[in-house]
Structure formats: C-alpha cells, structure tokens
C-alpha cells in the first residue's frame, strides 16, 4: 500500500442515508457518494464504498485509514475504527467553519445540538428516541401530500402566512395536516407551519446548550431552505449551511482518519493495517 499518499475515507452509516467521503493526500475531497441505508442496505455499506472508490479512481488498498461513523458504524467490516457521529460532526463542522461554536444537525431520525470549542466537542444534546421533527417527519409529510421531498421547502417559502401546527409528532401532525387541508387551508401555508414546528422543536432543544454564534446547520434536513429560514427566524440571527450538509459527518470521519494516520507517521509508526475486503457486513444475527 502506498502510505505516502495517505488517502483517507469516512463512511457515515446514517439511519436513512449512507455517505462516503474520500480525502486525498492534501486533505481535499476526492470523492463523495450517498446511497440509501434502508433495511436491506444496512449490510451493504460496501456498495456505497465501491462507488466512491470508482469516483476517486482508487482501490480499497490505496486508502490509508477508514473511520466509520453513524448509527450503523459497527456494520462496516472494512473500517479501521468506529467513532461516534457526535464527534465526527463536530470535526466536520469545525473544518468547514472554524468560527463555529454551535451546530444543529437534523438527520433522518435524530436531531442533535453540538457545542464546539477549537474543533472539540464540549457539550451536546440529542432528541429523545422519538423521531418527531426529523427527516422522517418530512418524508411522511411529503408522502401524505403526494409531493417529492425536495419540493417541500420551495413550496413552503411561497406561503403568504403560516398555520399553527400543534405537534411535531409524525402521526399527530399527519392527522392535523389532513384536517387543515379539508378546511381548505393553502398547502404552502400548512408546509410553512410544519417547518416552523420543526425549527421550534430543535431550537428549544439546543437552547439548553446556550447557543453561541456562529451557528452551523447540517444534516439532510439542512437541504430544506424553509427549515433553514425558520431556524434563522427562531434564533434571531444567521446560520451557516455547508454546500453539502449531508456529508458533514462523513467529512469529520475522514478528517479523523487523516489525523490518526498522520499521527502514526509523525511518531515513526506505521499506520495500523489490516486486510480489507469490500464484503457485506455480517450482522449480529448472522453469527
């Protein structure tokens, strides 16, 4: 293996999407690929990795170190180590925005707030086990309304006013939405109300950390312009959003992989090596 190049990779096996990001020898992104995690794909992290390697024009053997993160990080047989997504997100955010002190991340099934100092995670808060107000909530909303997920934000921003949505519970909000539609409330106003409800829930949760600027918003839901807007309104100031908010955790993982690899080399050690194969993950029940 050519260790001089020190390509590193981060793989973020989230509840909804699997993200892979490969960094080159200078720490710049060489490839980034997403794939649906899903029930079946939980063991198929290798497929997303193979696509990323194809995009980068590299073989697995040329990757110096791989860090896996996300809720499915233990299901990545070719990873060299696993690091919790909280730590990886903090690293990713700090790299993209060195001035960041607070980060809000809303993913497929969870929401978290991070307090960051000098790139380190100094405090955090997560939603409880209910997926209310997360990406899953928006998915169900899109399904209920017969829209594509990508359409929600744009449509919502056209609303002249917004309705009050009482709950971010996916089930209750769905029923409330149907009731509002039957009352003839415009779709855009209902969506604006939903996005407000998400923002309200997450901002309240993160307030416990004592929010300090700069605030960065990441995760798949940060791709929704209406949620971004609603969070800005709730906070009363601007929030920074990366160009690729979905990849923040994978980026952090790849950066940590790079840190580990470089530290080994600086200490005159070889990078921990193991035989790697792009195989399917064996889940616990297979053993």
């Amino acid at each position: 293996m050519n260790k001089v190049k020190i390509f590193t990779a981060g793989i973020d096996l989230g509840s909804t999407m699997t993200k892979v990001l490969i960094l080159d020898g200078e720490g710049k992104s060489r490839a980034q690929v997403t794939g649906a995690t899903g029930a079946e794909h939980r063991r198929l992290a290798n497929k997303v990795m193979a696509q990323a390697l194809g995009q980068a024009g590299l073989s697995l053997e040329e990757i110096g170190y791989i860090v896996a993160t996300g809720y499915g990080r233990v299901n990545v047989p070719f990873a060299d180590c696993q690091v919790t997504e909280l730590t990886c997100h903090a690293r990713g955010v700090s790299h993209l925005f060195p001035s960041a002190r607070t980060a809000i991340d809303i993913g497929g099934q969870d929401a978290k707030g991070l307090k960051i100092r000098d790139g380190k995670l100094v405090d955090f808060v997560m939603n409880d086990r209910c997926a209310a107000g997360t990406g899953r909530f928006l998915e169900v909303t899109a399904e209920t309304l017969g829209l594509r997920l990508e359409e929600l934000g744009e449509l919502s921003l056209k609303a002249a006013s917004k309705v009050e949505i009482g709950s971010t519970c996916t089930i209750f909000a769905q029923a409330e939405m149907v009731a509002l539609l039957s009352q003839g409330r415009p779709l855009a106003e209902i969506l604006a109300g939903l996005h407000q409800a998400i923002a309200s829930r997450v901002v309240k949760m993160v307030t416990g950390l004592k929010i300090e600027a700069d605030v960065v918003f990441t995760g798949g839901v940060a791709q929704n312009a209406a949620v971004v807007q609603a969070i800005k309104e709730k906070l009363g100031h601007d929030v920074l959003v990366p160009d690729e908010p979905l990849f923040t955790g994978a980026l952090g993982a790849a950066l940590l992989a790079r840190e580990i690899a470089l530290k080994c080399l600086a200490n005159g050690k070889t990078i921990p090596d193991k035989e790697r194969r792009l195989e399917e993950a064996r889940l616990y029940e297979d053993y």
Partner: peptide
C-alpha cells in the same frame, strides 16, 4: 432505555470530559 444510543453518547462525552 436505548443502550446503543447511550453508548454512542458516552463515547462522544469523553472528548467533553477531556476538555473540562
């Protein structure tokens, strides 16, 4: 109680303890 989630948070908490 969700032990996997708790463990994940605990791992991240090490960095917080180091900082303080």
């Amino acid at each position: 109680f969700d032990p996997a989630r708790a463990l994940s948070q605990a791992e991240a908490f090490e960095e917080t303890m180091d900082h303080y």
